[in-house]
């Protein structure tokens, strides 16, 4: 057991513990905050595994953007502030399937890697990673930019009720005006 092993073990324990709390807590907002802890521990894992660029992108995009979006959604759907009891289904099949898949994967990976030992590469992989992104993977990279644009347009079209529904919206427009007049 080296220092990297101990760090990976501790960060993994934090990540799994926070993950358990994310899927089991009764507070909606606390689930989002535990998700921050889990994703932060995973970013620490990436740092130990000498993937600095992935770690900082994780902090920027996941902890910075995705969790903030999720907390926005929690607020916009008027979630209850305190503990609420109706967040869960009775979950024996969920526990069976989730535990089965998780433990099954863990057994597979333990069987594949046993207690083998691998030397960590030297740190500082960001420039080599950028070289790979813009040399071997430049076409998927550009396709991803198109995908982000498509997701942006899709989210806008989904959330505006006056786009994309030609029939019923036009026939309902005088009713909407009528409602505005009555209000």
């Amino acid at each position: 057991m080296t220092g990297a092993d101990l760090l990976l073990l501790a960060l993994g324990a934090v990540a799994v513990g926070a993950g358990v709390l994310v899927v089991s807590t009764k507070h909606l907002v606390r689930a989002g905050l535990y998700l921050v802890v889990c994703l932060g521990a995973l970013a620490g894992d990436y740092l130990v595994l000498t993937a600095e660029l992935v770690a900082w992108v994780q902090v920027l995009i996941y902890v910075g953007a995705v969790v903030v979006l999720l907390l926005f959604a929690v607020m916009l759907t008027r979630a209850p502030i305190g503990a609420s009891d109706d967040l869960d289904r009775p979950g024996w099949p969920a526990a069976l399937i989730g535990g089965g898949s998780g433990l099954g994967l863990a057994v597979l990976l333990v069987d594949a890697f046993r207690w083998s030992r691998v030397e960590l590469p030297t740190a500082g992989t960001a420039d080599r990673l950028g070289e790979q992104v813009f040399r071997s993977w430049v076409l998927p990279f550009e396709v991803l930019s198109v995908l982000l644009l498509a997701a942006l347009v899709g989210a806008i079209v989904l959330s505006r009720p006056d786009i994309g529904r030609p029939g019923p919206v036009r026939s309902a427009t005088p009713a909407a005006g009528d409602e505005g007049g009555r209000a």
């Binding site: 057991m1 080296t2 990297a4 092993d5 990976l8 073990l9 993994g12 990540a15 799994v16 993950g19 358990v20 994310v22 899927v23 889990c38 894992d45 595994l49 969920a94 399937i97 989730g98 535990g99 089965g100 898949s101 998780g102 433990l103 994967l105 863990a106 597979l108 990976l109 333990v110 890697f113 046993r114 207690w115 083998s116 030992r117 691998v118 030397e119 960590l120």
Partner: peptide, 18 residues
Amino acid sequence: MRPVVPYVTAALLFGLGV
């Protein structure tokens, strides 16, 4: 570095997600 530690962490996290 023992690679089994992060692998098992990832497997458990995936099970938690499911």
